[in-house]
Simulated assay, not measured.
Amino acid sequence: MRLSELATLLGGELVGADVEIGRVASLAQAGADSLSFVAQKRFIAAASQSAAGALLARPEAVPQLGKPCIALADPYLAYARAARLLHPAPVTVPGIHASAIVSADAQVAASAQIGPGVVIEAGAVIGERCVLQAHVFVGSHAQIGDETLIHPHVTVAAGCRVGARVILHPGAVIGSDGFGNAWAGDHWEKIPQIGRVIIEDDVEIGANTTIDRGALDDTVIRRGARLDNLIQVAHNVVIGEHTAIAACVGIAGSTTIGARCQLGGAAMISGHLEICDGVTILGGTLVAKTIRQPGAYSGSYPMQGHGEWLKNAAQLRHLDELADRVKQLEKRLAALSAAAEEAE
């Protein structure tokens, strides 16, 4: 693709030679046919010295780069769009592999691609131009929306609904039973999990992420949300539109997370909470109470040498005692101040 054509498609301005571009690449791995990007000032020097044939950059950075550029306001977003243009997804090849097991009661669009070893149970619905790769399982009466891509070894359990243009990465489990048990005095009794998982349009779910079905109401992942790998979403959780959640986050049952939130890796979210729209939770943070104000929240303890950490941990054990001593000292100081004023 000529750089001028790409600039038009991205809504940017071509600066410099109209070179031909064949791929996107990092600054370190780029070659003469590669397009890379400069999103921060600290990478300008590296970009100017790289072998990249062209760059995406903000207008103010272009004069310092000495290469053909597309100037635009958000180089990182432009990179995402350029990558889709230069590296398009494989074309869907309609048909059902001979080794797939498809119930006679299932509805599979003629334009869908059903790979080897796929199992589709009775009453399931597979939409137009869907791709189900090897060994996907779709349970009874589950529904998969148009143009959804499901990678190998994904499970979509009975009754669950997956919207259009969703991506489910390998090993994801949609609709496993929620962790519901009642204590009967000497043993646990399982609580049937009769809700569903509802995944709305344009959602992406990472590899080996598990989303439990609701106990009564549904577990819901709203439109445009992004979930990374190895995330646990418990029963009856609701995740808002365009919220992004990084790997290894755990969300306990019946918690609602608002729209456009960002949760850093390994954050832990307790159950029955509400997190409002526009909240950022930093990695490793434990959220144990409802958040009603947008903003950034953190609760992780900074890393230290182990010896220093042990000393500080020992002091923390005496924090209540220290607080009591401070209160007593404040009372004594107030009494001494009052006596001094009377003496004057």
Rank of each mutant, 00 (worst) to 15 (best):
R2G: 01
L3W: 01
L6T: 03
G11H: 08
G12S: 04
D18I: 01
V24T: 11
V24W: 01
A25R: 01
Q29R: 15
A30S: 14
D33M: 12
A39E: 13
S50Y: 08
G53Q: 11
A54E: 13
L55C: 11
L56Q: 11
P63S: 05
A73I: 01
Y79L: 14
A83W: 08
R84W: 00
P88G: 11
A89K: 14
V91E: 13
P94H: 06
A98Y: 04
S99C: 05
A100H: 05
A100V: 05
I101F: 04
I114Y: 05
E121H: 11
A122Q: 15
G123S: 15
E128F: 00
C130Y: 03
V138M: 08
G139H: 06
S140Q: 15
A142Y: 05
L149R: 15
P152E: 01
A164D: 08
S176T: 09
D177T: 04
N181M: 06
N181S: 06
A182Q: 11
D186W: 07
K190Q: 13
Q193H: 08
E200Q: 15
D201A: 09
I205E: 09
G206I: 08
T210G: 08
D212M: 02
G224H: 10
A244I: 10
I245R: 05
C248G: 03
V249Q: 05
T256M: 00
T256L: 00
G265F: 03
A266E: 08
A267S: 15
G271S: 02
H272F: 01
L273T: 03
G283W: 09
G284D: 02
G284P: 04
Q293T: 14
G295H: 03
S298W: 14
G299M: 03
G307R: 15
L310A: 06
N312H: 14
L316F: 13
E321V: 01
R332S: 13
A334N: 12
L336C: 05
L336F: 07
A340M: 10
E341C: 07
E341R: 14
A343D: 06
E344Q: 14
E344K: 15
